[in-house]
Design a protein around this nucleic acid. Structure first.
Length: 434
RNA sequence: GACCCCGUCGUCUAGCCUGGUCCAGGACAAGAGCUUUUCAAGCUCUCGACACGGGUUCAAAUCCCGUCGGGGUCACCA
C-alpha cells in the first residue's frame, strides 16, 4: 500500500508552493489507491501557532485534498527521545552541552561515506557525507530537530514515498544516514521542482499573493486553482490543459513530473479560472455569489429575487475571471446611485444627447413587447430615422445605464434593467428633466 | 564560497529515456483583424524557443564533455 504524507509547519499560512506539494502527494495517493497522511510539524513551540494549523487545514479542505490520517509532532516527543537514546546507547550519537544552554543536546555522529540517493524524478544523486557535519537530533531543550523527527515519523507512519520540494534534496543524505543508523527501510524519494516568482527566486509575498486563502478571497474557484497548480511541472499530455481532477488522477504519475522549476503566472491562472467560471453550473455560481452580494449590501439577507440574479449571473458568466468580477461589473443592477467612471462620461456623454435619449424613451414606450428582440428593433428603427451610426448612440446609452464603457450586449442590459430604471437613468442626461 | 539540482518561444509545456517523422507542436500573454454594440467573451491570423561551445554519428532538441546562466542547501528553523 502506497502511503504518502504532506508535512506542513504551522508557522505561516498554506502557500502556493505547499499546496502544490500537497496536491502531488494527494494525487499520487488517489492514483495508486494509497493513503494521504497529514503531519503537522509543530515542534517549534515559539513559531507554531494554532491559528495557522486551522488556516492550513481549512485551505487543504477547500482545495479538496482530504486526508486519511493526521498527526501532530508536538504530541510525539517521547518517541523521538526514545530513538535518540537508542542511538546514544549504540554509540552512534553523543551528548554535548552548548555554551549558554542548560540541557544537553543529543548529536548524531555522521559516518563519512559516499551515498547515493535514488530520486523518482531525477534519478541517482550522489553525496559525500564527509562534507556534512554531525547533526543535532534532540536540542538542549529536549525537542527534536526537523531531520530527526521527520525520519522517525516517516518510518513510524510507514511512508512509502516522500514527495516534497526540491529544497529538501540536501536534507536527503542526512536523513538516509539516519534511516540506516536506526535500521529503518529507506522510502522512495521524489523531489518536486520549486515554484518561482515572476522576478526569479522563490515565490514570495513581494511577487504577489502566496497564501491559498488569499486566492480564495480573490474569487478563484478551488478546482480552477488546483487545475493551474497541476500544470506547473506536470502535463496531462495530448495538449490537454483544462482537466477534471478525476481525469488527472487517472493520468498522474510522479515519475513524469518535470525536473525544471516553473514560474507562477497569474495571467494563465486567470484564463483557467475563466474556463471554469464560464462552464460552471449557474446555480452553483449563484450560491457562491450570494454571500458576496450580501456583503456589499447589494441584496438583503433575504427577500431578494433569486431567479432574477440567476439570469444576471448567466449574462456575465462567460466573461468572469474571478467571482468578484461579477460583483464589480454587475453593480449597476443593484445600486440606486449609479457610479459613472469620469473617463467614460468624458468620452461618451460630453455632448448633449437630450434629443436622442428622449426619442429612445418614446420608442421604448411604444414597444408592443418589452423583450430583448423588440428593444433592439426599436433601437435600430430610431438609428435609421436619425440617420446615425448605431455605435454613436449605443456607447452613450451604455455609459448612462451602467456607468461603464464595457459590459454585456446593450439590449440585454436594458431588458434586465427594466423599462423604468432605463428611462430614469436616461432622463438624468436630458436637459430640463434632471 | 562549497555541495547539489536545473537549462525548449516572455511564461507553462510536448518532444529527450528508445537519435532521423521537429527548418520543433500546443496553451497563456502580446500584436493584427473579424464580430455593421463595447470587451473582459468568441473566431481568424501574426510574432516567438532547442543557453553557448566542442565531441560521437550518415544524422542530435534528443547521447557525451566543457562553459555560461538560473535556483536550492549549508541552523540546537522546518
Amino acid at each position: 500500500m502506497i502511503r504518502v504524507r504532506f508535512a506542513p509547519s504551522p508557522t505561516g499560512n498554506l502557500h502556493i508552493g505547499g499546496a502544490r506539494t500537497a496536491l502531488f502527494n494527494w494525487l499520487y495517493a488517489r492514483a495508486k489507491s494509497g493513503k494521504f497522511i497529514l503531519r503537522i510539524e509543530d515542534t517549534d513551540s515559539v513559531r507554531s501557532k494554532q491559528e495557522f494549523v486551522e488556516e492550513i487545514l481549512n485551505s487543504l479542505s477547500w482545495l479538496g485534498f482530504n486526508w486519511d490520517e493526521i498527526y501532530y509532532q508536538s504530541k510525539r516527543f517521547d518517541i523521538y527521545n526514545e530513538y535518540a537514546h537508542k542511538l546514544l546507547n549504540e554509540g552512534k550519537a553523543y551528548q554535548e552541552k552548548a555554551i549558554g544552554k542548560s540541557g544537553e543536546a543529543i548529536i548524531f555522529k555522521v559516518p563519512q561515506q559516499k551515498i547515493k540517493i535514488q530520486d523518482l524524478i531525477r534519478g541517482g544523486i550522489e553525496f559525500d557525507t564527509a562534507l556534512i557535519k554531525d547533526q543535532v537530533l534532540i536540542k538542549s531543550d529536549g525537542t527534536p530537530t526537523y531531520n530527526f523527527a521527520c525520519v522517525v515519523d516517516d518510518a513510524a507512519m510507514q511512508i512509502t514515498h516522500v514527495i516534497r520540494g526540491d529544497d529538501h534534496i540536501s536534507n536527503t543524505p542526512k536523513q538516509a544516514l539516519l534511516y540506516e543508523a536506526l535500521g529503518f527501510t529507506v522510502p522512495e524519494f521524489a523531489h518536486l521542482p520549486l515554484i518561482m516568482g515572476i522576478e526569479g527566486g522563490r515565490l514570495s509575498k513581494r511577487t504577489g499573493a502566496t497564501a491559498i486563502s488569499d486566492y480564495r478571497k480573490m474569487g478563484y474557484l478551488a478546482p480552477a486553482l488546483v487545475n493551474y497548480l497541476l500544470l506547473l511541472s506536470w502535463a496531462p499530455g495530448n495538449n490537454v490543459e483544462v482537466i477534471d481532477i478525476n481525469e488527472a488522477i487517472k493520468l498522474f504519475d510522479v515519475t513524469q513530473v518535470n525536473r525544471t522549476s516553473a514560474t507562477f503566472d497569474l495571467k494563465k491562472l486567470d484564463w483557467i479560472s475563466n474556463q471554469y467560471l464560464k462552464n460552471a453550473d449557474p446555480e452553483k455560481l449563484l450560491e457562491e455569489l450570494l454571500p458576496l452580494l450580501k456583503a456589499k449590501k447589494y441584496i438583503g439577507e433575504d427577500g431578494f429575487d433569486r431567479d432574477y440574479i440567476l439570469k444576471l449571473v448567466k449574462l456575465f458568466q462567460a466573461r468572469l475571471a474571478h467571482l468578484n468580477d461579477f460583483v464589480d461589473w454587475a453593480d449597476f443592477f443593484f445600486v440606486q446611485e449609479l457610479k459613472i467612471s469620469p473617463e467614460a462620461e468624458k468620452k461618451f456623454l460630453a455632448q448633449d444627447l437630450s434629443g436622442e435619449f428622449r426619442l429612445f424613451i418614446e420608442k421604448l414606450d411604444k414597444l408592443g413587447k418589452f423583450d430583448i428582440l423588440s428593444i433592439e428593433e426599436g433601437f435600430r428603427e430610431l438609428v435609421k430615422e436619425l440617420n446615425i451610426e448605431s455605435k454613436a448612440l449605443i456607447h452613450p446609452i451604455r455609459v448612462a445605464l451602467t456607468g461603464k464603457t464595457i459590459g454585456p450586449g446593450l439590449f440585454e442590459v436594458i431588458y434586465y434593467l427594466g423599462k423604468d430604471r432605463t428611462k430614469e437613468r436616461l432622463s438624468h442626461w436630458i436637459k430640463g428633466e434632471r
